[in-house]
């Protein structure tokens, strides 16, 4: 690996294109388009950012919109706004305030935030702690612990969610597997876990649990099954 001290910085203020490459810091304020894969220690973006290739950074901080054509990997990422990732997302800690759309798999140790997400692949995480203000979608979820809650939503978003279903603060997924599962307003085919807490507004086809299950009376469960001793 190259010595970090020798790496240059990339700073964009205003509107500009840039080539990819390895940097120490990438700071973009305004509209920036990076035409290739970029690796950096720190990546800070405010405004509208396009990355045409893979994006890798130890520290990622983004406000506004970002569009990544390739994969994205990081140690920590804080994101406020709207994000789109064509490939996979991989990292240690991810804090999201807004909406993200990931077309590949999503692998994280810690996933926290508020807003909504759409993951076309598998969401695999150590801990997920998410408050839904918009819709949450994933093909499959595999975790150690997951807490999905509906954020307190105002009258306006209730009104919007009637018109646009994407604003409906609900989680929709095929299967959820984990050790500790705590859900609200979730539609899933199968939920498998050790301790499972099903809050209000859930529709679940099959729940398999090992030690504990509690179900809110306002939820519908097709079948409950206790497995193991």
């Amino acid at each position: 690996m190259m010595n970090k001290n020798q790496l240059p910085d990339m700073i964009i203020s205003g509107v500009s294109d840039a080539a990819g490459g390895s940097y120490d810091q990438v700071i973009i304020d305004g509209v920036g388009r990076i035409k290739g894969a970029v690796t950096s220690r720190v990546f800070r973006g405010n405004g509208n950012i396009h990355v045409m290739g893979d994006l890798a950074a130890e520290e990622l901080d983004c406000n506004g919109t970002m569009n990544v054509r390739g994969n994205i990997s990081f140690d920590t990422m804080r994101a406020d706004g709207m994000f789109k990732v064509k490939g996979a997302l991989r990292g240690e800690r991810f804090n999201l305030n807004g909406l993200i759309n990931i077309q590949g798999n999503c692998e994280l140790e810690e996933f926290k935030g508020e807003g909504g997400f759409t993951i076309d692949g598998l969401l695999s995480a150590g801990h997920v702690d998410f408050q839904l203000q918009g819709s949450g979608k994933a093909r499959e979820i595999g975790v150690e612990s997951i807490v999905i809650l509906q954020a307190n939503i105002g009258v306006w978003s209730k009104l919007w969610s009637g018109i646009f279903p994407t604003f409906k603060p609900e989680l929709v997924t095929g299967t959820i597997e984990g050790d500790h599962i705590n859900l609200e307003y979730t539609t899933a085919e199968i939920v498998r876990g050790n301790t499972v807490i099903i809050g209000p507004g859930c529709k679940i086809g099959l729940v398999e649990y090992r030690s504990e299950l509690s179900v809110h009376p306002a939820s519908v469960i097709g079948k409950e099954e206790k497995i193991g001793g």
């Binding site: 595999g142 050790d179 497995i227």
Partner: peptide
């Protein structure tokens, strides 16, 4: 199957997914 594997080895879903991530 995944379920039989967990029964047989006594590991949890969380462990399995963590190992896959690693």
């Amino acid at each position: 199957s995944k379920k039989d594997l967990l029964d047989l080895t006594g590991i949890s879903y969380g462990q399995l997914y963590r190992w896959k991530r690693k």
